[in-house]
Structure formats: structure tokens, C-alpha cells
């Protein structure tokens, strides 16, 4: 585990977010072409993926400008979560879980960028629950 969350680390987390957003886009394009999701779900998933990308954008900027210590702690936890999401998102069968995953990750990301320690902790708990649900499937 890294001792200091520096700009390099934050930039890597942003890259993770972009990769997850890409996988999520692949996922929704695949599901819509198989007519497994409605147009509304498809659009909403797109909004969530965009939200992730917006956060990645903010992280790249933060990485260039400044890194707050409270964001640092959350980022370290995020890295592990991101690895798991990246590894499994495309193989998720439950659309609802995929949707929950991307949604909670987006909210967590916003909390990191807005530097709200309370929301960060809360969102990490939520996302861990969603991940646990996924492993039960």
C-alpha cells in the first residue's frame, strides 16, 4: 500500500474510472443490441457512465493541481474496488447489479472529488454491499 497519495496515484485511479466507464459502455451496447435492456435503461446507464468519466476528468485535474489528504484515504480503498469491478463488469448477468455498481461508484467518485469524507465512507460501505451481492449470485 502506498504511504502517500500523490498525483501519480490519483491519476491512476482516474484511468481506472475511465476503464470501468468503457467496460460499462460495452456492456450496455451489447445488452441493447441483444434487446435485453430497454431504451430507457440504456440511456440511464449512459448517463451513469458519463458521470464516471466526468469524475475521472476531475481527478486528472486534481492530480495536476492538488490532492487533499481526506480524498487520499478513500482512493486507497477505491483502488482495490476498481480492480474487482474491472474484472467482473462484463461478465455480470444481472443488469440490476451492474446498474447499482456503476451508480454507487459514481456517487462515491463524486464524494471523492467534492472531498466529503462522510459521504465517501458511506458510499464505500454501499459499494462493498453491492459487490458482496454480486459474489452471491
Amino acid at each position: 500500500m502506498k504511504e502517500r497519495v500523490d498525483s501519480v496515484f490519483l491519476s491512476q485511479v482516474a484511468d481506472d474510472f475511465l476503464e470501468i466507464a468503457k467496460k460499462f459502455n460495452d456492456y450496455r451496447f451489447e445488452k441493447i443490441s441483444q434487446q435485453l435492456i430497454s431504451q430507457t435503461t440504456f440511456v440511464e446507464m449512459g448517463i451513469k457512465a458519463n458521470q464516471l468519466m466526468e469524475t475521472a476528468r476531475e481527478m486528472k485535474l486534481l492530480s495536476t493541481l492538488i490532492v487533499e489528504p481526506e480524498a487520499g484515504e478513500a482512493l486507497q480503498q477505491l483502488q482495490g474496488i476498481n480492480q474487482e469491478i474491472k474484472a467482473t463488469i462484463t461478465s455480470l448477468n444481472s443488469i440490476q447489479i451492474a446498474f447499482d455498481l456503476i451508480g454507487t461508484l459514481g456517487e462515491l467518485a463524486m464524494a471523492v472529488v467534492e472531498k466529503k469524507p462522510g459521504s465517501i465512507a458511506e458510499n464505500i460501505r454501499t459499494i462493498m454491499n453491492v459487490l458482496a451481492k454480486k459474489t452471491e449470485e
Binding site: 501519480v8 484511468d15 459502455n25 457512465a49 458519463n50 468519466m53 475521472a56 476528468r57 486528472k60 495536476t64
Partner: peptide, 17 residues
């Protein structure tokens, strides 16, 4: 390389979607 180009990569994904 990482941040300015990283932003460009994010932009590319927006175009793609």
C-alpha cells in the same frame, strides 16, 4: 502524458459513446 493525454482519452470515450 498522463493528465493532459488522459483527458483526451476520456474525451475519446465520450465521442465513442
Amino acid at each position: 502524458k498522463e493528465n493532459l493525454l488522459g483527458l483526451l482519452e476520456i474525451q475519446k470515450e465520450s465521442w465513442y459513446a
